[in-house]
Computed example of a mutant assay.
Amino acid sequence: MTAATLTGTVVSADGTAIAYDRHGSGPAVVLVHGAFTGRGHPTMGGVAAGLAPWFSVYDYDRRGRGGSGDTSPYAVRREIEDLAAVIGAAGGRAMVFGGSSGGALALEAAARLPAVTKLAVWEPPYHVTADAPAVPHDFAARLDGLVRQGRRGDAIELFMVAAAQVPGEVVAAMRATPSWAESEALAHTLAYEAAVMGPGNALPAALLAGLAQPTLVMNGDASPPWMAAAGQAVAARVPRAVHRVLEGQTHAVAAGALVPELLEFFVAG
């Protein structure tokens, strides 16, 4: 039997409407997306479907995406307020799972929101070793500037090459695909991702050390070594963290690999 899916909207502290889908019933779990993805993305959609028999899973569009609104100027605290509003709609307390830069946002939020009762993250891309990408300290400003100039495709290319280590020739080929227009529609949110990660994607060691929630940090054994190092560094600094390595997984992790780990972690007392 397929778990019921309900669509709703909640208003964040600054008046921005945030759209979400709720899957299933039970204790609340909120999913926080990373770059280029939103509500209904196959990975998070698969996670929602896999957890729905036991949980109420809230898959929401971060501001500036899909069915959610946006309000200028952007600030990371507003995204934290958005998550707080979704948790409010979920009953006031929730477990949270964030992927990639969404994982970094979830970590930032957990430090400020006691309503987050447990936290799981997938490969937050902090830079802790010399082999990590060299992201400029003004990365967010550069991305925002390109979008303001109408150069959305160039903003995407800069993000992919500098932050995701995608070869330039691969990005050039991607520009010719039908999905490129969908990526361009989200180009303005790439500056948001850079702001969430902070200058140089530096590890927020003091923030992590102050987290009180039980935390699961996950990496794939087929991801770049610098991402593995980032996961290990996060787990080492969060007082109640455990670190798991998922066999055969890259940064583009499969939902089927995540669901058993999340289910075990969220069910545990």
Rank of each mutant, 00 (worst) to 15 (best):
R78S: 10
P124Q: 11
K118M: 06
P73R: 13
G88V: 14
A120K: 06
W122Q: 09
R93V: 15
A84D: 04
G99P: 01
V116P: 10
F97R: 12
A110C: 14
R112G: 00
E81I: 07
L105D: 09
G102D: 06
A109T: 09
A104S: 12
V96G: 00
T117Y: 01
A115P: 00
A115M: 10
R112P: 00
T71R: 15
D82Q: 11
E123H: 12
L119T: 14
S101R: 02
I80D: 01
A111E: 02
G88C: 15
T117R: 11
P73A: 11
G99N: 06
A120L: 09
S100N: 11
K118D: 06
G92V: 13
R77Y: 00
I80G: 02
I87R: 03
G103P: 08
A84N: 09
A106K: 02
W122E: 09
L113P: 08
P124D: 07
G98I: 08
V76C: 07
S100R: 03
Y74P: 04
A120I: 06
A75H: 15
A84M: 08
G92I: 10
I80C: 10
P73N: 11
A85H: 10
A84F: 07
E123T: 09
A120V: 09
A106P: 02
L107G: 00
V86L: 03
I87Q: 03
P73W: 13
D82N: 06
A115G: 07
A90N: 00
A94R: 03
A89E: 15
G92E: 07
V121L: 05
R78I: 05
G91C: 01
L105T: 04
S101E: 05
L119Y: 12
L107R: 03
W122F: 13
R77C: 04
D82F: 14
G91M: 03
A109S: 14
T117P: 04
E79C: 05
Y74S: 00
A89H: 13
G103S: 04
G88H: 06
S100H: 11
G98N: 05
E123M: 08
A84L: 01
L119Q: 11
V86G: 05
G98Y: 02
T71H: 14
A85N: 07
A111I: 06
A110G: 13
P114V: 02
R93S: 15
L105W: 03
I80S: 02
P124M: 12
T117K: 09
G98T: 04
A94P: 11
S72R: 12
E79D: 13
A111K: 02
G91Q: 09
D82I: 12
V116A: 05
L107D: 09
V116W: 04
G88E: 11
V96I: 05
R78C: 08
R93Y: 10
P124T: 07
E79S: 04
R78P: 04
A85Y: 12
P124F: 02
R78Y: 13
L105V: 07
L83P: 05
G88Q: 13
G91L: 06
V121R: 01
V116E: 03
R78Q: 14
V96R: 00
L83G: 03
I87E: 04
M95F: 06
Y74L: 02
